[in-house]
Simulated scan of single mutants.
Amino acid sequence: MRRETQNILLVLLGGALLKISFSGLYLRYVQKSLLPLLIAAGVVMIGLALFAIIRDIRRGKAADEHDHEHAHSSRSTWLMLLPVMAVFLISPPALGGDVVNSAADTNQTQRSRNLLGELPSGDVIPLSMTEFVTRTAWDESGTLDGRRVRLTGFMLRSEGGTFVARLAISCCAADARPLKVKLTGDVPTIADEQWVEVTGQVVPKSANEQNSWVPSFTVESFTSVPEPVEPYES
């Protein structure tokens, strides 16, 4: 690969990292806590490219090459630019229902045995999908029984049931794991992948090993909402 090509790729890749970092698109790839590392990586790549360009100019590096070599290098350069340009031109959606359906059932929850904290007071408790699913799987005292809970996720229909689902990540989208809750009662017809806030109550003892720890949830109310800025839970 020619040095000019390397420098161009470094500038574009560094620029792509900075673009997704400052536009907020990075949240579709990695956790929020990794933002400083993305920015640092983009700055370093651009800095290395500029340093190399300035060094080559000072050395008076000749750019004349015979026509065949120039044509071959140009084709290779354009091919290597394709994935970088894709970052600039394409804004991928957050992972959704396809990942939930295709993931192994054993990934439904981390099933952590860490001690669970006290539930907040109030008529309706807003909980993350992660905490709700973990509590229904491991809290044998039934602290959620009879409590009204509000969950936020996207609609999903599969295996003859209707679910509200969400994806959680530990580091980046590559390690996304599905979380889903089966809806019962008066469930309105809402398109798959539509984000909703749903209020209701857990069906006691509904999450078990036989159904891969998927709790059932009796619906009281539904509200359609925009996709959150941070679509993944951690």
Rank of each mutant, 00 (worst) to 15 (best):
M1R: 12
M1D: 11
R2G: 11
R2A: 08
R2N: 14
E4V: 12
T5L: 00
Q6H: 07
N7P: 00
L10Q: 07
L13G: 03
L13K: 00
G15E: 15
L17K: 00
L18S: 06
L18Y: 09
S21T: 08
F22E: 04
Y26F: 15
Y26Q: 02
Y29S: 02
L35T: 00
L37C: 03
L38G: 05
A40S: 10
V44R: 07
I46V: 10
G47M: 09
I53Q: 04
I54W: 12
I54S: 06
D56E: 14
D56L: 11
I57H: 12
A62E: 11
A63G: 13
E65Q: 15
D67T: 07
E69C: 01
S74I: 14
W78C: 10
L79W: 09
L79D: 01
P83W: 10
P83I: 07
M85F: 15
M85I: 15
V87T: 13
V87D: 12
L89N: 10
I90Q: 07
I90Y: 14
S91M: 13
P92C: 10
P93W: 10
A94F: 05
G97W: 13
D98S: 14
D98N: 14
V99D: 10
V100R: 06
N101R: 13
A104G: 13
D105M: 15
N107A: 13
Q108S: 12
S112R: 13
S112E: 13
N114T: 13
L115H: 11
L115M: 09
E118N: 12
D123T: 11
D123Y: 05
V124Q: 11
I125H: 05
P126A: 09
S128G: 15
T130D: 15
R135N: 05
R135C: 05
T136G: 01
W138D: 13
S141K: 13
S141L: 10
G142W: 04
L144T: 03
R147E: 03
V149C: 08
V149M: 07
V149Q: 04
R150G: 00
R150A: 13
R150P: 00
T152L: 08
M155Q: 09
G161S: 15
R166T: 02
L167K: 06
L167T: 00
A168K: 07
C171F: 12
C172Q: 08
A173Q: 03
A174Y: 04
A174F: 10
D175F: 05
P178G: 05
L179F: 10
K180T: 09
V181Y: 03
V181W: 03
L183Y: 02
L183F: 03
P188M: 05
W195E: 10
E197H: 12
V198E: 00
Q201G: 06
A207S: 03
N208E: 02
N211I: 05
S212I: 05
V214N: 01
F217W: 00
V219E: 08
E220M: 11
E220C: 04
S221W: 02
S224Y: 00
V225M: 01
P226A: 04
P226V: 02
E227R: 12
P228A: 02
P228F: 06
P228S: 04
E230F: 00
P231Y: 03
Y232A: 08
Y232C: 05
E233S: 11
E233I: 03
